[in-house]
């Protein structure tokens, strides 16, 4: 009997794959308190809890494209993007333990980062603001 030619075998197999992926998806994503903004894989600015409590907007540029990052009521979201698909805008606010906000056309990633890695970051964030 060839097991791989039976439909029920694959139904069970793919059901298990989905369950595993769902569990992995629900695992916490790491990072705490600090929010980092990355462009092209490099940290360009970060915010600690205090900075997250002052509402403001930042415009980040990348090769002619722009993203507007908005901080309000302690949460970070992208409210405007120059690209047509606007996936980063529809992602909504960044949540602890949730998926990072990613803008592929402008190479932008916003995510929670670890407090411990943060020592040299404050200097960088000072430059950008």
């Amino acid at each position: 009997m060839k097991l791989y030619l039976k439909s029920w075998f694959w139904v069970i197999f793919f059901a298990l794959v989905c369950c595993c992926c769902f569990v992995i998806y629900l695992l916490p994503k790491g990072g705490n308190g600090y929010v980092g903004v990355y462009q092209n894989g490099e940290l360009i600015c970060s915010f600690d809890e205090e900075e997250l409590n002052e509402d403001r907007e930042l415009v980040i540029e990348y090769m002619g494209g722009t993203n507007t990052i908005s901080i309000s009521e302690g949460s970070v979201s992208i409210t405007q993007a120059s690209c047509p698909d606007g996936d980063c805008v529809r992602h909504g606010p960044l949540e602890p333990g949730g998926t990072p906000i990613i803008c592929l056309p402008n190479r932008l990633v916003i995510k929670y980062i670890d407090e411990t890695k943060n020592d040299d970051v404050d200097a960088v964030s000072g430059d950008v603001k």
Binding site: F14, C21, I24, Y25, I102, V109
Partner: peptide, 23 residues
């Protein structure tokens, strides 16, 4: 491709969701 182009490995977080959607 997205990880290589952007140099941000965090995009892998989308993999489980994309595998479920692929099924």
């Amino acid at each position: 491709a997205a990880v290589l182009v952007t140099g941000t490995w965090e995009i892998i977080y989308y993999l489980p969701v994309l595998i479920i959607s692929g099924v």
